[in-house]
Design a protein around this nucleic acid. Structure first.
Lengths: 347, 347
DNA sequence: GCGCCGCGCTTAATCGTTTAATCAATTGCA
DNA sequence: TGCAATTGATTAAACGATTAAGCGCGGCGC
């Protein structure tokens, strides 16, 4: 019944070479004491036979599965491709596979998803938590990627600094009134980004913040954000906390006949896939996901190798914040002085 | 050295209850012959101890890992979240985990990614191939999700029918000249979608096709698509083969001062995350990923359970095409008769 | 020359589960 | 009553790897 693994195993290599399995294992792993000549012979023969070690056998013996879990409670997040790609790359470079778990946006199902991973015997996991949820440590090492202000965070982009970059950029272009556009005010990430923007404002500049989810709860999903009004009130820059919101702002403004960047500027965050190809292309801030993933995975791997018992712990990394990089494109430009007048009219 | 698994195992349950491991195993799996009373006792005690079976032990014995691989050579694809989510859900419902593999867009690395999965002992895998690449069957069952016209395809959305839905919708709105906007003419999916649109045109309607990648090779990445010119030539509808291209078209038209949908209509494919929130919201065609994933996974699981030897085979499913659903939003509207005149002028 | 040490390899135990084979005890049937 | 069939459990052998322990054997020091 049980389907036999097709490939050769240590035993086959051993008997075929007239040595013991232990020697073959030692030769391939380079751990025990085997003569160089024999190591050479065994490795050659193993390669010739196309030997691939059985993860199951190894896992059973060592208690390590060689697999990391990736938990993304908010899998619909458009950042997901980048995250998954970066984590998979870093994990695979460290010799680990990546098992994904999703809870379809259901926060309570997050624990269930984590449990599924634990049952599958992952050696550790990377969690990108949904909004403000704190992950309760599972029975294995956990790395959290959220933002530096989150308790228990392992590593993340420096969202605050990213916000300051945006503010400095807009200040340099002469903008005075900035509308910050976020989705959910409970998101640690969005709060840090907004905080960074506010912290980066120069004297004489002011900002207001618009939370879309709050607005939609009153007006209905997909409603207008009323940005044209805001522009008439004197706002010349719309700093969205994610490219998704930036896109929404950009298209709404264009639809209302307001030109970007001639009349107002729009900026985003994350450098999502469409950012370079929309017209005008989006000025945004990119996070270095590859570095973040590498730090998270190596912190995880370090902990796995070090700890004898597989206790559940939030791992920490030396570098907690990875700088974000400002990408200046076409959607941001010099503040239009005409808006100044409309601002004066308004007073 | 080897970290001990923390939880109880069959042996602990067995000794604690004074029975043999085999009986415990039988009681939990319901396979052998165990008295109902004892089954009850064992199950209760196992639950009380919080027993979770070791996947490693089970995998070693049965030769099945209980894990499926998900290969997405084009992981940057914005569809990825939906695909991954749907596959993970279907797999997890069938008792399988999902291991991801990515080749960072490198086609040659696709084989390498597949090999990584095989080495990890996946029981089967789902492959969403990049463009025209044919996947060479690995040493395990493989389900391919691409499009019906791809040889070896297991299941996919009916992209052709989706195209016809778009054509019928635009025809109903009175559009006569349609510009099809695709990215790469080698994509099976995009070709099917374009073919469907053309097949759905009514007498008196005509279409032209613009391949962005071809254009960018001449003009540079991120260049204008020249859609304003096309509009002046009399095209009143722009049918993109993906929402990403639709977004590019929409913003370019808006930037040129052409109003959507008052002047021209824009449609897309895939109902990506931004489609409902841009202004105007995008008319698009949605694929039923959940159904597709479920069919792919169950075809895979059937084959895994049926075949004793783990041969590498492309699996087939009864339902090969899953209908796509037209989502009518604001970006498509009645053909503007004014454009007719400009068309006449053009003649 | 004797004992000791280290090298190179083997032996054997072990991880946790499944499952075929076995066996004692009870039941069924003639 | 005697023999076979069934029930309810046990025993033991895998699966494939890792690794501590053991065992000749040759060389070295004293």
């Amino acid at each position: 019944m049980a389907s036999q693994r097709p490939g050769p195993n240590l035993n086959r290599i051993a008997t075929s070479l007239g040595v013991s399995v232990a020697t073959v294992s030692n030769a391939l792993s380079g751990k025990g004491r085997v003569s160089d000549a024999l190591i050479e012979r065994i490795r050659a023969h193993a390669a010739e036979l196309g030997y691939v070690p059985s993860q199951a056998g190894r896992a059973l013996r060592t208690g390590r599965s060689g697999v990391l879990g990736l938990v993304l409670p908010d899998i619909a997040n458009p950042l997901f491709p980048k995250i998954a790609q970066a984590i998979e790359y870093a994990a695979s470079a460290a010799g680990y596979g990546v098992l994904i778990a999703d809870s379809r946006g259901d926060i309570t199902a997050q624990t269930e998803a984590i449990n599924r991973l634990v049952e599958r015997g992952v050696d550790g996991m990377v969690v990108v938590p949904r909004r403000a949820t704190r992950i309760s440590a599972a029975s294995c090492p956990v790395a959290v990627i959220d933002t530096a202000s989150t308790p228990g965070n392992t590593v993340a982009a420096d969202h605050w600094q990213g916000g300051k970059e945006i503010a400095a950029h807009l200040a340099g272009l002469g903008h005075k009134q900035i509308l910050i556009i976020g989705n959910n005010h409970e998101s640690n990430v969005q709060n840090d980004r907004a905080g960074g923007i506010r912290a980066g404002l120069q004297p004489g500049m002011r900002s207001e913040t618009l939370w879309i989810e709050r607005l939609e709860n009153e007006t209905g999903a997909g409603c207008r954000l009323g940005l044209a009004d805001k522009a008439r009130q004197g706002f010349t820059a719309f700093a969205a906390l994610s490219d998704l919101q930036a896109l929404r702002a950009l298209t709404e403004l264009q639809q209302e006949g307001i030109s970007v960047p001639a009349d107002v500027s729009v900026t985003g965050f994350d450098d999502l896939i469409w950012s370079p190809v929309v017209t005008p292309s989006l000025t945004t801030v990119r996070m270095d996901m590859d570095t973040i993933a590498e730090i998270a995975v190596s912190a995880l791997v370090d902990r796995i190798n070090e700890s004898g018992t597989r206790e559940g712990v939030l791992v920490t990394a030396e570098t907690e914040r990875v700088p974000m990089q400002l990408i200046i494109r076409q959607s941001s430009g010099l503040a239009n002085p005409a808006s100044k007048t409309s601002e004066m009219e308004n007073l």
